[in-house]
């Protein structure tokens, strides 16, 4: 870890915790700083010399703050709510099971207690070559090359990859957000904005080091889930080596508007298989207006992975991903709402 300046941004932290922004809070946004909330990714990466911020701005809610989740059209989630708080929220569990389950199945209880929602969607990849400074990595050092291609790739991505980067996006919550057309709200020195969550992350392309569309100093303040009564028929299915505390080999966030066995709308996010939070629009189109049979689910899954690019170790991922999606769709269809 290298020396860095640490500052506590009290006004900003209070604003994030209450959802009420004061001018003093806006003053504390720093384009040259790395924000620190739960710290579960940042501190880890600083210790292994992968992230080297000069300035760390602490925006963690104070002990008395109650990060909010409130009904607002659909549901509004504060970016500094902990993953544990959100996962246990009754309205989220009742109306958006896919979101609650994605949080519940992420990380370990200890990490969920520390990590915040805003930090979680920005979690950096677990690509081992990104995390080891002995290797070239275009994400860590632009232009240095990609050591992952041709290496140990079992946990790496097959969708949305480029010849410059095959790192996988590791999170779960983001798959639920992207599936439900959630929006993200941010605060920047020049004002606040709201945009589709799907526009937050950038696929690696030729610039794997640019992971989001956030401007320097821009801070996520919350997430807005649209009012979606049929999202009660939704679930998050995570296939992993062990039963708890493991990254997804493949996961599927699905929500179905099912009427008399016919799909009026399907929303599908895929995790563990893609470079960024992944919305499977092609699969959704296959299901639209159709009866949800196993055959149809298989066709949708095939469409979802049509563009997969695999390596030796992760060649199984399209097949596992397809099966995961089929299982999730059939399970969602069978839910008793």
């Amino acid at each position: 870890m290298r020396p860095f300046a640490y500052e506590r941004a009290a006004e900003l932290a209070a604003a994030l915790a209450t959802g009420t922004v004061s001018p003093a809070a806006l003053q504390q946004l720093r384009p040259d700083a790395q924000y620190l909330a739960g710290g579960t990714t940042l501190l880890d990466l600083m210790k292994i010399d992968v992230m080297r911020p000069d300035r760390v701005l602490d925006i963690r809610p104070g002990p008395a703050a109650q990060p909010v989740i409130r009904a607002e059209g659909g549901l509004w989630l504060s970016a500094v709510a902990s993953m544990a708080q959100a996962a246990e929220h009754p309205a989220l569990r009742r109306d958006y099971p896919v979101v609650a389950e994605s949080l519940q199945q992420a990380a370990s209880a200890q990490l969920r207690n520390m990590a915040t929602l805003g930090g979680n969607v920005l979690q950096r990849t677990r690509c081992p070559y990104f995390r080891d400074t002995a290797f070239p990595c275009n994400k860590r050092e632009p232009g240095s090359g990609c050591a992952a291609i041709g290496g140990v790739t079992r946990l790496l991505a097959v969708l949305g990859v480029s010849e410059h980067c095959i790192a996988s996006y590791p999170g779960d919550f983001a798959q639920a957000l992207i599936a439900l057309d959630a929006e993200v709200e941010t605060l920047a020195p020049d004002g606040s904005r709201r945009f589709p969550f799907a526009d937050l992350h950038r696929p690696p392309g030729g610039t794997p080091h640019v992971e989001t569309t956030l401007q320097p100093g821009e801070l996520i303040t919350g997430f807005r889930l649209p009012s979606l009564p049929w999202a009660r028929r939704s679930l998050y299915l995570k296939v992993r080596d062990r039963e708890s505390y493991a990254f997804a080999l493949a996961s599927a966030a699905v929500a179905l508007d099912l009427r008399d066995g016919v799909v009026h709308a399907a929303r599908i996010g895929l995790g563990g298989v893609a470079a960024v939070p992944w919305r499977a629009h092609e699969a959704e189109s296959v299901l639209q207006g159709q009866k949800l049979t196993e055959t149809r689910a298989v066709q949708a899954a095939e469409a979802a992975f049509a563009g997969a690019v695999t390596q030796e170790d992760n060649a199984f991922k399209p097949e596992l991903g397809r099966r995961t999606l089929v299982r999730a769709l059939l399970q969602a269809a069978a839910m008793e709402i």
């Binding site: 080596d241 062990r242 039963e243």
Partner: peptide, 14 residues
């Protein structure tokens, strides 16, 4: 490659 407890998996209670 997986020289950490997040990716070197040992059994957990579950």
């Amino acid at each position: 490659v997986n020289d950490n407890l997040s990716e070197y998996l040992i059994a957990v209670n579950a």
